[in-house]
């Protein structure tokens, strides 16, 4: 095995090097990029995406994709926003539980349709993407939740906290990342998720309940998208039925895929996904600094997805060749 192949295996290292190179280049072109403000912007932009990426990563590791998460986010944000209009005193913890539950139910619906009817998850979630988005409009009556509808203690959640004034959502998303890491890396269920994605037939033969594992991934993915809805309301201070969460699924998927999660299932890590999202966040902040118009952002993300997919396929091919290639 060559050094190059070893390098291909440790994807986190690859993405980390890209980040380092990118940051150095950006800092040389414009030293302003290295200011605290830039990095504060990076870390404020990340939590929302990061939390969703954790769920998406789990779904992709078990060989599926959920593209309805943007709509789930919007729905949970609208629900919690409407509740705030009625009960401005609703505590943060209760809000978290409510949004998590709303997302969980929607995720489980996705998972149920996918496992019960055996249709590709992208087609199913393309359907629920619209279905849930429509529900957002029905529930809200098309009305935006305004800044003054969101209680102060919710807004401050994304601005400060008891801990060195680090924004609460950053701490909270950090906790979610750590938990996801522990579950995926060290729990029995987590390893069963990897096994299911790696080889579903073998997983079934070894007595793993593949349906249960798949449902779990979709459920958590929806749940985290629901929590992201609360983050959204807190950070942006408004929820708009037509804007909130639209297209966010592709940013999340981009981050997960460049983080080294293989679309063919079975591999991917929390660290890689974190670095993937971090890279996207840095690009996001660096673009104006580098005088690249913000309009280019989506094209860059799209290019990254396509390149990552192609690279992934090439790596799989190379690995097959290495291991002697059964029926390669």
């Amino acid at each position: 095995m060559t050094l190059f192949d070893k390098f291909l295996r440790i994807r986190e290292l690859g993405i980390f090097s890209i980040i380092v190179v990118f940051v150095i280049v950006a800092a040389i072109i414009d030293p302003r990029f290295m200011t605290l403000d830039s990095w504060r912007a990076v870390f404020l932009a990340i939590p929302l995406i990061l939390v969703m990426a954790m769920g998406q990563m789990m779904v992709i590791i078990c060989r599926h994709v959920d593209i309805s998460i943007g709509s789930i986010l919007a729905f949970s944000a609208i629900v919690i926003g409407l509740l705030y209009i009625q009960f401005p005193g609703l505590s943060l913890w209760l809000s978290l539980i409510i949004t998590a539950f709303v997302g969980l139910v929607m995720g489980l619906i996705n998972g149920f349709i996918v496992t019960r009817f055996n249709v590709h998850s992208i087609i199913v979630t393309l359907g629920t993407l619209s279905l849930y988005r429509g529900l957002v409009f029905i529930v809200s009556g098309g009305r935006q939740i305004d800044r003054n509808d969101i209680p102060e203690h919710v807004v401050s959640f994304s601005q400060t906290s008891f801990l060195f004034s680090i924004p609460g959502i950053l701490i909270f998303s950090g906790i979610i990342v750590v938990i996801t890491h522990l579950v995926m890396r060290h729990s029995v269920l987590g390893r069963e998720i990897y096994a299911t994605g790696s080889n579903p037939v073998a997983a079934h033969l070894k007595g793993i309940n593949v349906t249960k594992v798949t449902l779990f991934c979709f459920g958590i993915c929806g749940m985290l998208a629901g929590v992201a809805g609360l983050f959204y309301a807190s950070r942006f201070g408004y929820v708009n039925p037509g804007v909130t969460g639209v297209g966010i699924e592709f940013i999340v998927i981009a981050g997960v895929i460049i983080g080294g999660t293989s679309i063919t299932g079975g591999s991917g890590s929390v660290l890689g996904t974190f670095l993937g999202i971090l890279l996207l966040g840095i690009i996001n902040v660096a673009l104006p600094v580098l005088n690249i118009p913000g309009e280019f952002q989506k094209a860059i993300y799209g290019l990254i997805i396509v390149v990552a997919l192609a690279l992934d396929q090439l790596i799989i091919y190379r690995m097959k060749k290495l291991s002697g290639g059964i029926n390669a």
Binding site: T128, S130, G134
Partner: peptide, 8 residues
């Protein structure tokens, strides 16, 4: 927008 629900 609400029609999306039905289409989905």
């Amino acid at each position: 927008e609400s029609q999306l629900t039905i289409l989905g």
